[in-house]
Amino acid sequence: MKIRVRVNGQSYESDVEPRKLLAYYLREDLGLTGTHIGCDTTTCGACTVLLDGKAVKSCTVLAVQANGRDVMTVEGLEQDGQLHPLQTAFWEEHGLQCGYCTPGMLMSGYALLQDNPNPSEEEIRRGISGNICRCTGYVNIVKAIQSAANKLADAAEESGDSAKEVSTSGSSSD
């Protein structure tokens, strides 16, 4: 079956078997191996991607169901060679050990911060409750997401300040 899917901003046209799962389509057909397959039974969340902006387990969505829709994978976080602040925070806070769950944790963390830019520790823990870390490194994962929330808030404030500066300078030149 022919499908057209937008992945990380790029459009792809593919011919897939209806039974192919989105996770396998991303990895095998598009070569986007950042999305990991862990349990393959809708439990672990290693395969988490965003489908039309919502975090879902891509082992439990058919590739044909993504037809005409927008997918974001962990490869879509980095922009112009710059890691996303969430990725930097995982690095700095040591939010990964073996790294297998990390792409899923990043995508769930990303979706959480989109909906709730300033989550409490409990909200973070609930937000990643569909993602299992078998190294049990949750403490640092939570810290990393908290740190990313702060980074993003600071960045938003800075851009707000610079916008203000612009308007101030604009008015002073009047």
């Binding site: 809708t42 969340g45 975090a55 387990k57 439990t60 969505v61 569909g130 993602n131």
Partner: peptide, 9 residues
């Protein structure tokens, strides 16, 4: 119900 990822679908 389940977890946030499952609840989205």
């Amino acid at each position: 119900i389940a977890d946030p990822l499952v609840r989205n679908l």
